[in-house]
């Protein structure tokens, strides 16, 4: 199980989600991608997309207006 980080700080919608989609394709099953975002809308649409794909998702608010989205590739 490997762990990757994706820095999307300062990126506006829909860039964080597009980058996440691209990144997730490269991951192997069991790997975790940590997406760093500070766009309040991405904190909703990135997890929503990942759940739609059937991945495990968790959101952590690491600072004011800054989140880390943990996405585990399950399939």
């Amino acid at each position: 199980m490997a762990e990757y980080r994706l820095d999307c700080l300062g990126e506006a919608c829909p860039v964080p989600l597009l980058k996440t989609q691209k990144e997730m394709e490269k991951l192997k099953v069991g790997d975790v991608l940590i997406v760093e975002i500070d766009h309040s809308c991405a904190m909703k649409n990135v997890p929503e997309w990942a759940r739609n794909m059937g991945y495990n998702v968790e959101i952590e608010e690491v600072d004011d207006g800054q989140w880390e989205v943990y996405i585990e590739k399950t399939k």
């Binding site: 300062g10 990126e11 506006a12 500070d38 309040s40 608010e61 004011d64 207006g65 800054q66």
Partner: peptide, 18 residues
Amino acid sequence: ATLLASQFKIKKIKSYKQ
């Protein structure tokens, strides 16, 4: 809404593309 949720942050412009 942002302040009450304690989520305010000044987001600087990241690149000339923006």
